[in-house]
Write a protein that binds this DNA or RNA. Structure first.
Lengths: 108, 108
DNA sequence: GCTATATGTACCTTGATCGTTACGTAACAA
DNA sequence: TTGTTACGTAACGATCAAGGTACATATAGC
């Protein structure tokens, strides 16, 4: 959890996760997306690996990374302790759509 | 968003948010909860303030902090781009409760 | 074996961050 | 006004994170 939020706090790493959400990508392809040099990407990938957010599979010289979204569910679970609070506030602002929001909330 | 995730990446600050989720708290009370000295707490509070996660109100000498959960909704929105991915995986593990999960997911 | 390709690691530098102690400030209380 | 309480800020040292360059490793192809 600590490691996951730490990993998510970096813009480059979030960009990498977004790219990975479309499917497996090699380290080189990820590096091409970012304004930093490849060794930096390698280190970011290590952080993501240690946070459990990616899996690696080797294919010849290539390392193919894929997203492992489970740790994000932990973040979501942590966040859910606050969800009621902000939804309450949003409801106060948009009272005209209260009925729809209440329906949705009741199923969580 | 950047500032919010940055703020959330620290354990002490998350502890402060948790305390604040029960209601407004003074800076001193927050400091008492943490293993660090008050000046450190003050700086953490500044980070939370700059991320928009807390509001301050002055009451005589005291500064009363209250949680402002709206920025957490942004994090939730970012996270929601991945929610389908991890729910898919969890469903694969717990196929027996698929019906309940699918109901919930369809309303998000 | 030799070279090219793909990637990670080591090492260095710079800038941010965390905590501490010391100090400044503002509001009450006597 | 003097002291006390409750904060914040400044300045400092230590640690950490992010980037780059240079190098090591491993696989594929010849």
């Amino acid at each position: 959890m600590e490691a996951v939020l730490q990993a998510l706090s970096d813009e480059s790493r979030r960009t990498m996760l977004e790219a990975l959400s479309a499917g497996p990508v090699t380290a080189g392809e990820l590096a091409a997306l970012l304004p930093i040099a490849r060794p930096g990407v390698s280190r970011h990938l290590r952080v993501l690996r240690e946070a459990g957010l990616v899996d690696v599979r080797q294919d010849a010289q290539r390392r193919i990374y894929s997203l492992r979204p489970e740790p994000l569910a932990e973040v979501d679970a942590w966040l859910s302790r606050y969800r009621a609070l902000w939804e309450q506030r949003l409801d106060a602002l948009n009272t005209e759509v209260t009925r729809g929001k209440r329906e949705r909330r009741s199923t969580r």
